[in-house]
């Protein structure tokens, strides 16, 4: 038991949790914005993959990491706009469109990657982000090296959480987002454009999903592989539900999942575990499904989620 304990309180372990949590935090916040406005975005898995690919490619061709991040974010926004076009402007069913966006974006990512880089025996890689220690704070014991000696994108994720909460709960735009997600009819009467607000929220969500993809291919793996996202988008869908559509809780859920994932990796590496690692990977999905069953009585999901809005229909 003490061996396990020592493992947990290693600095490297804490740093690993933060690193695993980062793309999940971006993706979860992105999905949360979309869903708070009433739009489920199942395109997330494909959007993350395509952004990871375009970001990696831009960096690989230009040598600039931040240009890559920008391209990944723009890719996410573009795909978000596409999903919004189908689900918000045309009012098509959100879940089927989302699957369509995921199939389309993943296919496009594979296609373009193969077209640009061909089939190489050693997949091309880039010199990804390097850790950027924060002055003073990085010399704190334990927390310093674990939290304040990370990639710039990690700090952005940490800052994105309070920022998302502020935007959602303390700005007029955030109020509009919540209104169009809860009661679009009332929002419309109050002069809020349901269509425009939903578009904006889904596109903002896409930008965050793009950052998640960028982190995977440009900071975590420094390469694009076909399994670079491997279900993290679906994890984010689960974490939003588990985090009750709240930025703080969703980020907390991402951290909790990252802890379980990091623990699983450690146990696999040290040969400590007798439990198959897949059991840990299953946990967030099982927890979420159970949580949905328990929570459903006090309905916390945005009321207008999955419901298209058409002004003329009453």
């Amino acid at each position: 038991m003490s061996a396990v304990f020592e493992q947990i309180f290693q600095v490297g372990f804490l740093a690993a949790i933060i690193r695993i949590a980062t793309p999940l935090a971006f993706a979860t916040l992105g999905e949360m914005f979309s869903e708070r406005a009433g739009v489920l975005n199942l395109g997330i898995e494909g959007i993350m993959l395509l952004s990871a690919m375009t970001g990696f490619t831009a960096t690989s061709l230009s040598g600039s990491l931040w240009l890559g991040v920008l391209v990944a974010v723009l890719t996410g926004m573009l795909m978000g706009a596409l999903h919004a076009l189908f689900t918000v402007a045309l009012g098509l069913s959100q879940h089927v469109c989302g699957i369509g966006v995921t199939l389309f974006s993943s296919g496009l990512a594979y296609f373009l990657y193969r077209l640009i880089f061909g089939q190489q025996s050693v997949p091309p890689s880039i010199k990804g982000f390097e850790t950027l220690p924060v002055p003073v704070l990085s010399s704190l014991p334990v927390l310093g090296p674990a939290v304040f000696n990370q990639f710039a994108l990690v700090y952005m994720a940490i800052l994105a959480i309070p920022l998302a909460a502020f935007v959602l709960y303390r700005t007029p735009w955030g109020l509009s987002v919540r209104m169009v997600g809860e009661n679009p009819r009332a929002a419309d009467s109050a002069g809020v454009s349901v269509i425009a607000t939903r578009f904006q929220a889904v596109i903002l969500g896409g930008a965050l999903m793009g950052l998640a993809g960028a982190f995977l291919s440009m900071a975590q793996f420094n390469a694009f592989t076909f399994g670079v996202v491997s279900g993290r988008g679906w994890v984010a869908i689960a974490l939003v539900v588990f985090g009750r559509w709240d930025p703080w809780r969703s980020a907390g859920a991402a951290l909790l999942f990252a802890f379980v994932d990091a623990l699983q990796l450690r146990m696999q590496a040290s040969g400590l575990g007798h439990i198959p690692y897949e059991a840990f990977l299953m946990l967030p999905f099982i927890f979420t499904i159970v949580a949905m069953a328990v929570m459903s009585r006090n309905a916390v999901a945005p009321s207008a989620l999955l419901k298209p809005f058409r002004r003329e229909e009453r």
Binding site: L40, H95, E278, I289, S296
Partner: peptide, 27 residues
């Protein structure tokens, strides 16, 4: 069952079960 008994959204629950089954198969 979750939808009928607990009003759980079937889109998300059926989607998430895919991952559960996949990891069970891998295990």
């Amino acid at each position: 069952t979750l939808r009928v008994k607990f009003k759980v959204d079937d889109v998300v629950s059926s989607l998430l079960l895919n991952s559960v089954i996949y990891y069970a198969l891998m295990a």
